[in-house]
Design a protein around this nucleic acid. Structure first.
Lengths: 140, 140
DNA sequence: TATAAATTTTTGGTCAGACCAAAATTTCCA
DNA sequence: TGGAAATTTTGGTCTGACCAAAAATTTATA
């Protein structure tokens, strides 16, 4: 049964892959199967999460079709992805990690770090425009 | 019943207050009551956690007396506290946060960030010896 | 275009791990 | 040394992620 109390970790797991290439494909619907395979869980689990994400106003959910970010979901996804990419930039350009390492390390903390810290780092690094792997970094 | 599978978050909750002033008081025993009041949970919950921490080899647990860190617990605590203080230093000295803010922000990510990143930041900051609140930063 | 295959949803569960409450035990100290 | 305070034991609850089978829907194909 769908639960309004999803963990931040679980929410982010869904938001990230959707927002990652959002620029390229803003109108794509994501299927149950897609996430079930990606996360190696049963489809019924994904359906539940879809319903929860929808109740949180983060996605539009159409039965048998899948999910798509709402404006609120886009916003939350962008905030998250910005954190991730600023961290990636910092880890690779300032601390000397490889792209891949930087991404892995960023993933460990991006959902926990505050926007305030990210903004300060961003300013200190003079507002980089792309992360080391070449993806855009959003600036509001 | 005690559970060997404690969450990292729960472990850290106990390790932190003990290691925080470890230098001043290395032989102190910490009581059930102390943590029950600190975390606002029932004493029976704390007893359970004491047993779990003990099974993990992080503390010595004496019934009706309390807990005390083992060498392994000290090591883990120091690793955690080093992460915390390096982050505090970075947030206050490089990003301009107040001591208090720096501590709060560090607490959000210190248990998730890797030692590798902390070591890199530490090198970049030229191995600071004390955090902004004046506590020692361990170097191994 | 009917029907078989693939996908998704519904329903009714399990399980981990933090937590609680009452009763039993132990310790402390007046 | 006996009662109060602290702790432990025992037997629970609850949340949130997850599963499995059956029902419903969509898609593909003959």
């Amino acid at each position: 049964m769908p639960n309004i109390n999803m963990k931040e970790q679980t929410i982010s797991k869904y938001l990230k892959p959707i927002i990652r290439n959002y620029d390229q494909n803003p109108n794509k619907w994501f299927s149950t199967k897609f996430f079930a395979e990606k996360f190696n869980v049963h489809p019924s689990t994904v359906t539940e999460h879809f319903q929860s994400l929808s109740m949180l106003g983060l996605v539009e959910y159409k039965k048998y079709k899948g999910i798509k970010l709402t404006p609120h979901g886009i916003k939350q996804g962008q905030i998250l992805m910005r954190k991730h990419r600023i961290l990636e930039y910092f880890f690779s350009n300032e601390l000397g990690l490889t792209c891949e390492e930087a991404c892995k390390e960023a993933s460990k903390i991006d959902i926990y770090i505050s926007e305030k810290i990210i903004d300060k780092i961003c300013t200190k690094l003079e507002h980089p425009r792309v992360c080391p792997c070449g993806h855009n970094i959003f600036h509001y």
